[in-house]
């Protein structure tokens, strides 16, 4: 069969909502796009543990500490689901980790911002996880089976992340003047980076067209961003806080909120490694990998010893 025929069969499957599975024929570009996207997504989950891990030891109560640990543990799990999905495309786990450490693979820029106060934990849950869910729910229907299945699992768990974030802000909103000021400050710092999580404008987004055709992506960056703004602009009222955008207002004609211009210079700066915490985040990942080396070795030695003992017992 010619490549042209194979491509037609492949595209027909996608058009008919038949999922592509790892051993099916797929265009090389599709495979590469998925490896890039899924591994980047996995790295984001793993690096995403760092800003929150920073507050585990200083959570204000045992309850909040337990919730935060559970959330960070979920993120480790999400990273693993996604690494596994990417591995079905023929890249090894170690290769992906090497790409993260060398800077070849990116992760979501949002995690290059620092977490300066306890209110950041709530703001991240509400805004950052809220934006992530907006992006991730359509991915549960992505055309590649293992990715779609991993995302179903992720989305099921992610809802708790967003809800606990909003609830913790709700508590702060009923607190002291300082607590409310701290929360407003956190919202101010996380709002714009959260909007940037949806990626460049559709007109600037290089990967979008093929991804739409292949049904990896189902909605455009700007579409999802608008939905997010509409949702948050309403939710913020329950907290009696404001969003740091003087241009944010309801547009009766469009039936959407209008909002201000995103600082794309900042976005590209952070993407290109010059965000406030890029270096710290990568250093922390590399250190964790290096510090874990003896553990990986010891586990192999232990497994060998156990296997030998078993073989002797059988003999």
């Amino acid at each position: 069969m010619s490549v042209h025929d194979l491509e037609k069969i492949f595209q027909d499957k996608i058009d008919n909502e038949v999922r592509i599975e790892p051993k099916d024929w797929m265009p090389e570009k599709y495979r590469q796009t998925l490896i890039r996207q899924i591994s980047q997504h996995a790295h984001s989950e793993i690096v995403g543990m760092l800003p929150e891990g920073n507050w585990i030891s200083r959570a204000p109560s045992l309850k909040r500490k337990q919730i935060l640990i559970a959330k960070v543990q979920d993120e480790a799990g999400h990273g693993l689901y996604l690494y596994s999905a990417a591995e079905t495309l023929g890249i090894s786990r170690d290769e992906m980790i090497e790409q993260l450490h060398s800077g070849k693979a990116k992760y979501s820029s949002i995690f290059n911002y620092p977490t300066l106060t306890w209110a950041d934990m709530g703001a991240i849950g509400w805004l950052v996880d809220g934006a992530a869910i907006m992006n991730q729910v359509p991915l549960t229907r992505a055309s590649f089976g293992p990715y779609s299945r991993a995302m179903i699992r992720v989305c099921k768990e992610e809802s708790f992340h967003q809800r606990q974030g909003f609830e913790s802000l709700l508590v702060l909103s009923k607190g002291t003047e300082e607590q409310r000021a701290m929360m407003q400050d956190a919202i101010n710092r996380w709002w714009w980076p959260s909007l940037m999580m949806f990626g460049p404008h559709d007109t600037e987004s290089t990967n979008s067209e093929a991804s739409m055709k292949w049904k990896i992506k189902r909605f455009s960056n700007d579409e999802l961003r608008q939905r997010f703004v509409d949702m948050i602009a309403e939710q913020v009222k329950l907290l009696h806080m404001t969003l740091p955008d003087p241009d944010l207002k309801w547009n009766e004609e469009r039936k959407h909120y209008d909002f201000g211009v995103i600082d794309w210079d900042e976005f590209w700066n952070v993407v290109n490694g010059n965000g406030p915490c890029n270096k710290q985040r990568l250093d922390a990942r590399k250190k964790a990998w290096e510090d874990g080396e003896w553990v990986r070795e010891a586990a192999v030695a232990h497994a060998e010893k156990r296997r030998d003992r078993l073989q002797k017992a059988v003999a």
Partner: peptide, 18 residues
Amino acid sequence: DLFRKYFYGDYDAIKGGS
């Protein structure tokens, strides 16, 4: 500032920080 910002282990480059 009404409240304190922490730069604990995370970040040290904000000017005029904590």
